[in-house]
Design a protein around this nucleic acid. Structure first.
Lengths: 192, 192
DNA sequence: GTCTATACGAAGATAGAC
DNA sequence: GTCTATCTTCGTATAGAC
């Protein structure tokens, strides 16, 4: 099908675009990360980028994925409680400059009509994260360390939602104590 | 200071701009709501809009405020629990087409450097909502209907965050049952 | 105070040549 | 695979009429 990425040179180019895009993004912010600026940093025309990414949105999603993957490599997830996993991820997120902004913009864009790619990506991402968290919570409920009078699926959705929402609140008002507030979930989930 | 809105015509114009903007927004989505399209719907030049709103962002924030105020008029908030207030607001939100998209885009934009107006607006808004919710929770804690082993301020922040985050998840995956999931907070907040 | 006309610069996207 | 050239649209700014 001739999709870029299947051949060595295409793979390298694609990676270079992402690397440069991340640099531009961290130097000039999201609004300064236009196709033209990224292309300029590489030394090609902006139209060339669209050979590897169908749109700016897809490129930015790839940037987000790339940044997230790299972080996952640095901090492999040890066996931990659901609350611990979520809290750690949230704290890690807000420590990467611009990451929450990027995530928020992309998610918001995914809600809009016409954003097929972003919608698919984040729908799948939310589903995966909720599923993983649900598994952890189920195990903890069976072990008796988490209350079981609320379905694990609902707790998972609430944990993800609270984490996303609180990162935003924290960016606007750092006095809210992100980590401590999320850690309160441990108390809320204590068995009856 | 010559701020528009002090004279009858200006007040009416300002309101008309907001009304038309909402219409355009609901018909064509957020991306289709450019200054030029709104102006076209009214029959003025797009530069005229900037006489009443300093930027597109400020206009959209005003649109959001307007929509939110109108909804508040239709559904006055009766004395209710914190969880009830939050759940009702969330359900109301997702029922207005495009409202969560608009809110999400504006909040995400407020996180970006250079967004002074949006940053101020949403910082103040979050603070106000957290404060009102904290008051409600404190009263319920004193009444013994809500657990008091987690500070009311933290519970308020978590409720707001979970509500915001879950509205987004619901838009992407309506099977998660927004209302029922948020209602689970009642169980989580039950006194020990 | 209200508004039109106009211009600027930047953006995403596309077409077609090489 | 990459380019140049171009299209269209956008937000914003300014000058000036009424």
């Amino acid at each position: 099908m001739g999709r870029p990425g299947a051949y060595p040179k295409g793979v390298a180019r694609r990676r270079e675009i992402l690397d440069r895009a991340i640099e531009v993004f961290q130097e000039r912010g999201l609004q300064g990360t236009s196709l033209r600026r990224i292309a300029e940093a590489i030394g090609v025309s902006h139209a060339a980028l669209l050979h590897y990414f169908a749109s700016r949105e897809q490129l930015l999603v790839a940037v987000y994925e790339h940044a997230e993957t790299q972080r996952g490599v640095r901090h492999p997830v040890p066996p931990e409680t659901a609350v611990g996993v979520m809290t750690r991820a949230a704290v890690d997120n807000v420590e990467v400059p611009g990451l929450v902004e990027l995530y928020s913009i992309l998610v918001a864009g995914a809600l809009e009509a016409g954003s097929d790619y972003g919608k698919r990506f984040f729908t799948a991402r939310f589903e995966r994260i909720r599923r993983e968290l649900t598994e952890r919570i189920l195990a903890e409920q069976r072990a008796g360390t988490v209350r079981d009078d609320v379905p694990a699926e609902q707790l998972a959705a609430l944990l993800v939602a609270a984490s996303d929402g609180l990162q935003i609140q924290w960016l606007l008002e750092p006095s809210i104590e992100l980590e401590r507030t999320l850690a309160s979930w441990t108390v809320l989930l204590r068995p009856q």
